[in-house]
Design a binder for these strands. Sequence first.
DNA 1: GCGTCCAGGTCTACC
DNA 2: GGTAGACCTGGACGC
Length: 293
Amino acid sequence: MTIIPPVDFNLQSTINSHGWYDLPPFRTNEHKSELETIISLSKLKHVHIRIREMNSVVEIVPMNKTIRLSKTEKEKIKNIVRSMLRIDEQLNVFYLLCKKEKHLRWVPKRQAGRILRSPTMFEDIVKMMFTTNCSWALTKIMTEHLTHKLGAKTSDGLFSFPAAETIAKKSEKWLRKEISCGYRAPYLLKLCKDISNKKIDVESFRSSDISTEELYEKLCSIKGIGHYAAGNILKLIGRYDYLGIDSWVRKRFSELHKNGRKVSDDVIEQHYNRYGTWRGLICLMEVTADWHT
DNA sequence: GCGTCCAGGTCTACC
DNA sequence: GGTAGACCTGGACGC
């Protein structure tokens, strides 16, 4: 399976855009030039794939050579990969903005700005919930426990990200103990039950045409998702109006713009306001610039 | 090895 | 509307 990406696409920059590549079922190689994950086509069919870029073409290789995929299933996998890698995202205006700023000229040069997302919105929301109020090490532990204990095992020994319905069947006590997600357990359980009972349809968020403010409010109405998490989930939807400020952004901003002096979130917000609807992505590029060098 | 303290966002009760 | 405290875990630190 292959995808012809636009000329401004770069797989390595997309993989390296943020920490998602480090959370299972994602995994990558040393140079972050290839990405593996599991695409769940149904409750019973999970396909372990490797994504790589060869001669300006994105290749998708199923890792289980014996698996049979219909034409429809192959098309579905290709569409999910397009969505994960943000291949159809138009960044021309963003790149023009970056070219005007001396310190951001590296962004179009490295074809950065496409932020890796999970196969599903649900997976993105749960992982974002797991980044709140803890170290990255704990985020990894929680995600590893969730996939290993509730995900489906593929024939080559990897585990898929579990469906909301699977998690919803577990108790809060079980999630606390087995997933190590602590006080997040009731939030996770409520989200999964609401999805199972069709009270909320998070998968529609990526293609929704409601305003960014409304989408932000919808995200904030999910227990366990606050201003930081909602702002960053919006970036994964392709809306960059919110900064999603966390301790890392505060630290990097003070180092980059204030000689290490701490500033309030209002000061950070005001600084990026001049970038309009691209401000969230500009902020992300600034604070992660050294990851790309 | 053990105990203590701290960092990390979000929620809720209270003013 | 603003604020303080609780939530839970891993890691750093001191003993």
